[in-house]
Design a protein around this nucleic acid. Sequence first.
DNA 1: TAGCTGAGTATATGAAAGTAAACTCAGAGT
DNA 2: ACTCTGAGTTTACTTTCATATACTCAGCTA
Lengths: 157, 157
Amino acid sequence: MDPRLDRDTSNCSIARTLEIVGEKWTILILREVWYGSSRFSDFERVLGCPRNLLAARLRMLVEEGILTTETYKEPGSRSRPKYVITPKGMDLVPAVMGLLHWGDRYRADPEGPAVLARHRACGAHVDIQIRCERGHPVQAEDIESVPGPAFRMKSAE
Amino acid sequence: MDPRLDRDTSNCSIARTLEIVGEKWTILILREVWYGSSRFSDFERVLGCPRNLLAARLRMLVEEGILTTETYKEPGSRSRPKYVITPKGMDLVPAVMGLLHWGDRYRADPEGPAVLARHRACGAHVDIQIRCERGHPVQAEDIESVPGPAFRMKSAE
DNA sequence: TAGCTGAGTATATGAAAGTAAACTCAGAGT
DNA sequence: ACTCTGAGTTTACTTTCATATACTCAGCTA
């Protein structure tokens, strides 16, 4: 990965993921879904996010298959839509756990984090780790990035 | 974590992390640092990002202690600054690996990813996993979020 | 049938981001 | 002394994004 090479970065998986979840509010909406919110008004109240953006982000997350809509019915009210996470959305958990853990470490209040992630089965604190296919824990420094099958160079302009 | 509760989310670690790395270009700059770039012109060329934004992002990353500046000297030229990652910056690797992995899975080209992450020692592919303190692998569905020491409710307005 | 409520849409305004080009600045080479 | 280069800064303009507020709409209840 010589930095002087003119790599074509248009098919970068990080950039492509950020195209979807990199806009303001998107990850925070997903956070609230994980914490149990599902209704438009819940997101609005807890996030304090403008309604038109909330509507736009929810629509996009549904289009991308990260959320899906179901209906709920409060007694005495009509059916309304709610937003639930899909398996594709659950697969974003590790990335967001990474952000959470970094914030806990470097930007938390003196008394500690606001939210703790626990293993439901045993109650122990959960964290993310990097491992290689053989199961060895890997330090970030020991990761080597190499060109993959879709690696491309910039074509001459 | 009842969604109807008026939680105060101003001290959320995810939101605080996004305040730093959530702006456009920031994570892509870090990606290039991991891939080996360190000079202003390298970032500019490979990212195609406007110079004023690149300068602003680099300044912010240095202020936050995620990057630090050193100098390099090309023979026949004067010393110039270069940007290198700090341990605090390396601690963002798991989060970005999460984004990379998700993109590889859901948004890669048909032939596969553009970049592969390998364990330098054994050459095996690396990935991120969620584990509890006792070392058990944890599925995203088995994570429970509970109020932590800095949990707060919204004060009455 | 009039009002209430949750889930939006529409509109206006301001703040960032993108684009492009000119300009600065320090020092090494000639 | 003059030029060249990498690393920026500055300015000007356009476009997209974000915010705030007002408005709509469907259906349940009174």
